[in-house]
């Protein structure tokens, strides 16, 4: 999928993560803020990368503000943001291919 515009999903509430995606020229960049970054920062980034991989996103700037979200919440918020960023050609969700 191609990111054609800025989009966001999630909230700043506890147990959630606010994910913003923006179009980028080359590759995946993840800017993460989390109070548990020391312990789980690597894993959160890994989950974001895996989710983007399943969606076929190759070029994107992801800004994520984590408030202690579970992996399943991170996946859901990344997917929502990516689908919203797909623009007018919002594709139908293929549930079988999600992470």
């Amino acid at each position: 999928m191609k990111i054609v515009k800025n989009a966001a999903a999630g909230t700043m509430e506890s147990s959630d993560i606010l994910v913003t995606v923006q179009p980028a020229e080359q590759g995946i960049t993840i800017d993460l803020t989390s109070s548990i970054e020391e312990q789980f920062g690597r894993q959160i980034r890994q989950v974001i990368r895996e989710t983007l991989g399943c969606l076929g996103v190759e070029n994107v700037l992801v800004t994520a503000v984590d408030k202690g979200a579970l992996d399943c919440t991170i996946r859901a918020r990344v997917e929502t943001a990516v689908y919203r960023a797909a623009g007018a050609d919002w594709p139908e969700v293929d549930w079988g291919t999600l992470s």
């Binding site: 999903a9 999630g10 399943c72 919440t73 996946r75 859901a76 918020r77 997917e79 929502t80 689908y83 919203r84 549930w95 999600l98």
Partner: peptide
């Protein structure tokens, strides 16, 4: 609605 659908699916 889209956001909740993804969240419930993954939960």
């Amino acid at each position: 609605k889209d956001s909740a659908r993804f969240l419930v699916y993954h939960a």
